[in-house]
Design a protein around this nucleic acid. Structure first.
Lengths: 342, 342
DNA sequence: CTGTTAGCGCTTTCAT
DNA sequence: ATGAAAGCGCTAACAG
């Protein structure tokens, strides 16, 4: 198959030709260079010519010249989980506002790469910087090369200074206080792999806060964020000798699994067991038992990641960011007063 | 804030310097130019030098030179709906396999742009071509400019020749045959806006096939693909004088809404009403009543879109594509034998 | 077998 | 107030 020559759009030189000026003048005018004083008449002629020729600046040439690509790379671990989609959407919009485009890379869940493996995108100047969410707690060295602008979002990585996260501890406190308010004294946290930073932060916060409030806490780690995995954990909870009276769940998929396991075990929600989700989604309101959840500022986190990354790209100093957009508890019908233990 | 000069990676010239050869030779060797016979020893020296200098080709320079960016633009209408996410993931992976990267643009649902508005991405050579899913049935002219390589995926657009779609009619037949098998004679199709191409195709196929089989068909169009909208339609169905005995639903969100409406109206599924979804998702298996669905080849469609677009970019002739990956009916528990009408 | 040359389209200093 | 010239890093046609 022959590569067909692309029909070229008008170049700067074409516009210059039409307007009868030098290309550099066109560049100055069209870019609104403030340091250059141009005669209004010339300026008008140039603008007219550009419009007439349907001029479009060539991003590649500009990028080569200025060594700025105008695009950002975003590595997400798994698009199947809606939280990444919301983060993505938030980042997409903020990037657009700031004149950047975003390339999404989805980590293969089977063959996860360490964050450092994506450096090449910057080194080959495909993107100006990276937003990474594929850090596991083990691999702390990460994208150590300071020449590669990057931030870790939602999951911390590296040695700090490039992390953009939400206030997971706050979310956990919100849930636990809600539980306390309804008289629960023994709760479970059903969440993902302990190697995942978000999970680790939630667990730590839960332990601390439960200790403070004298609440019993049971932590269950699913091996992966799937319905099946949540289902298995749910069976475990339902069959335990001293089951908790409230269960908080880390992801939507796991929640569906848990619900199914409880239903099967004839554990009624919320009569026998209250349930809270850390993922808010519209669909929760329409389930057989509408599920109470914490609405986390995901889009804001995506946007904040873009801001932080652009800050690094522009030479800003390393600085961790915690998105403090207020979280809210969306009260639905899956939480009831705790029943006295038998 | 000062823009910091990016630490440059080694260039071709640097490698040439180390290896003691001319840059063009390095280019030939590193690109494995078959027409150029190079002395093995020189080749080795060059490869060593490249490794030593940690050489990375500069994508921008290459793009400028070859007028190929190596990236594709993908415009999706709404990431909230999981089908677009699956299409996106399929496209992402195929693009990666073929050495391309993808930039995702999410259409703002509030301010939809006609497809033609994304031409600038190609004209400014940010991408080599466009995959568009934001076509509405009205705007047929679309990206008329033949200089802009593009395909419409999942939703047809333009004047044909650039469409990549699934066999929606086949999916509809699958569902209707399933309904017939269970003795249903009156069914409803609850789907999105009639201006959406996918919806229009499903409706047409449903009308045709129902007529052929002597089945009564009632079509309900939701204004938008949300739970709320499905809920409203569900109320309408539940309260109708001659309710259908089976309801097929176009999207997951609408399905959740419908389920809630039926539950509220004390219409039991599947006893009083059978339900089938055109979106397959793992979570369907874990609902209070596991929902039967059609599993559509979404990832394949995403991949096929990339293939079709690259074909156009490489000068291939216009050609519509229908992805014929076999669809399967995922039988769960939301379909039962039709009850005799009262 | 390898070097020379030119140029993709743009911006930016320097000169006038 | 505008033009000239250089060069970002790469590749491809042409020489030798």
């Amino acid at each position: 198959m022959e590569a067909v020559p692309r029909r070229r759009t008008a170049r700067l030189a074409d516009v210059a030709g039409i307007a009868g000026v030098h290309p550099s003048t066109v560049s100055r005018v069209l870019n609104g260079d403030p340091s250059a004083a141009v005669r209004p008449e010339t300026s008008k002629r140039i603008h007219d010519a550009a419009r007439q020729a349907h001029y479009r600046p060539n991003t590649m040439a500009r990028a080569l010249r200025g060594s700025r690509t105008g695009s950002l790379g975003m590595v997400v671990p798994m698009l199947r989980n809606p939280i990444w989609v919301r983060l993505q959407a938030g980042a997409l919009h903020r990037a657009q506002e700031r004149g950047y485009v975003v390339m999404i890379i989805e980590e293969s869940p089977d063959a996860p790469h360490p964050a450092v493996d994506y450096r090449y995108l910057v080194e080959e100047s495909r993107v100006d910087g990276l937003m990474l969410a594929n850090a596991l707690r083990g691999q702390r060295s990460a994208v150590s090369d300071p020449g590669v602008a990057h931030v870790f979002f939602n999951r911390r990585g590296g040695r700090g200074g490039n992390n953009v996260v939400m206030d997971e501890a706050g979310a956990v406190r919100l849930v636990i206080e809600h539980a306390v308010e309804y008289g629960h004294r023994s709760i479970a946290l059903l969440d993902g792999d302990s190697e995942v930073d978000t999970v680790a932060r939630r667990v730590r916060a839960a332990r601390a806060h439960c200790a403070r409030r004298g609440i019993e806490l049971q932590v269950l780690h699913c091996t992966d964020p799937t319905e099946e995995s949540g289902y298995l954990a749910g069976q475990q909870i339902a069959s335990s000798l001293q089951p908790p009276t409230l269960c908080a769940v880390g992801s939507l998929n796991q929640l569906f699994g848990l619900r199914a396991a409880l239903r099967e075990a004839k554990v009624s929600v919320p009569r026998d067991m209250s349930v809270v989700s850390f993922d808010e989604d519209e669909c929760l309101a329409y389930l057989d038992v509408p599920v109470t959840s914490v609405s986390m500022p995901l889009a804001e986190l995506g946007a904040a990641s873009v801001d932080a990354l652009l800050d690094r790209i522009n030479g800003g100093a390393a600085r961790d960011v915690v998105v403090r957009t207020p979280m809210t508890l969306v009260r639905r019908e899956s939480v009831a007063r705790a029943r006295r233990r038998p």
